[in-house]
Amino acid sequence: MASVKKTLLIGLFFAAVCVGGFFVYINAAFPTVRCEAAKVTHLNAPEDLSDCASCHAKTTPRDAQDWKESKHGVLLVKCFVCHGQPDGKGAIPFNAKPEYKTVCGACHEPAMNRMAAKYGEVGDCHTCHPRHQNPIHRNAFEAKTVTDKTSF
């Protein structure tokens, strides 16, 4: 009886060491890459990192791709126009969820007023216009020349 228990305990201990060692190894081998997004706050981001999109293409690829293919992406309404600059030193205060009336309204006030007149105050834009994506009514301007050749 005692020897089975002892074997079990030794086995458990051995497994724990292996698993623990595995995790320690992973942490050491991939110190920042394993979850690139989680530990990088914007204040760690390199000083010379130009636009938001290049890093967000890696950290939040879904949103970055959505934006790139959306109307805002085609028209180069870049991230900071709505979201500001994340280190807080920008002209626009940083916000992960922009305030609709002032931020969206800076360009889209006529359309927002038309919508409000037709359907009443909705309170937010992104219920129907999913963040960064095409509006529900039409496809965005479809990218017509998706190729990496420079001549036709």
């Binding site: 706050t41 914007h42 204040l43 760690n44 994340p86 280190d87 807080g88 940083f94 992960a96």
Partner: peptide, 11 residues
């Protein structure tokens, strides 16, 4: 403070 989970920035 910045290392705390959920903190975006410190002003």
């Amino acid at each position: 403070v910045r290392g705390v989970q959920g903190v975006l920035a410190v002003y």
